[in-house]
Design a binder for these strands. Structure first.
Length: 208
DNA sequence: GAAACGATTATCT
DNA sequence: GATAATCGTTTCA
């Protein structure tokens, strides 16, 4: 557990959201909160490439609002939004400053700090009688934020430095990456902008 | 000032 | 695998 994690440089996030979303698979999300370090391998992402995407919070029809303002920020900036009123979701801003694009991190494969993750998620136990399998700790956008202690305090935090950053990891081979449609949205659902590691059991939703 | 929606999760069958 | 519940933000009058 003394392994050193090297944050990805901000240049990594300067590219297209769609491209970054694929490249992120296999890298690790590291969170150091309350003196505990939690690490998870990124196995599922979704791209929100820009204003032309009707599903984006920064769609052209919506414009710039107080909520999506962080998406217009610099690359590697954290955009944390609340959906369904109760779930926090972590996005990484991509592209040039002033251009609203981001990658939603949907699922992680727990690597470190499992005890802490489980403790944070505490009483909530998905799968009533089945207990809490490791794969369910971070298998969802809101699950991973809760497990890693990510909240509104991290809004606009830059993800290339502690206490919350993305560390370089082993990249997922191209042939293992599955491309699929995004989940839980009504508009722009046709586009296949979701990517995940087909080998991982921690993916929230398989392809249709 | 009030109503509707949502990038989901939790729970049971 | 399928269904109900949940709360803040956004949007409209």
């Amino acid at each position: 557990m003394s392994r050193r994690y090297t944050p990805l440089q901000s240049t990594f996030f300067e590219g297209d959201a769609e491209e970054v979303a694929q490249d992120l698979l296999g890298h690790s999300l590291v969170s150091i909160t309350d003196g505990a370090r939690c690490v998870g391998r990124i196995v599922e992402t979704e791209a929100y490439p820009g204003p032309h995407d009707p599903a984006s919070h920064a769609a052209a029809s919506i414009g710039r609002t107080a909520r999506n303002d962080p998406m217009f920020g610099r690359p590697a900036t954290a955009y944390i939004h609340l959906n369904y009123g109760i779930h926090w979701c972590l996005n990484v801003v991509t592209g040039a400053e002033g251009f609203p694009a981001a990658v939603l991190i949907r699922s992680l494969e727990p690597l470190e700090g499992l005890a802490e993750m489980r403790r944070r998620r505490g009483g909530a136990g998905a799968g009533a009688g089945a207990g809490r399998p490791d794969r369910d700790l971070c298998s969802g956008p809101a699950k991973l934020t809760q497990a890693l202690g990510i909240g509104p305090a991290m809004q606009r935090h830059r993800l290339n430095e502690p206490p919350l950053f993305i560390a370089r990891g082993k990249q997922v081979p191209g042939d293992a990456v599955v491309r699929a449609t995004r989940v839980g949205i009504s508009r722009g659902a046709e586009k296949e902008l979701r990517f995940y590691d087909g080998r991982s059991p921690c993916v929230s939703r398989k392809a249709l």
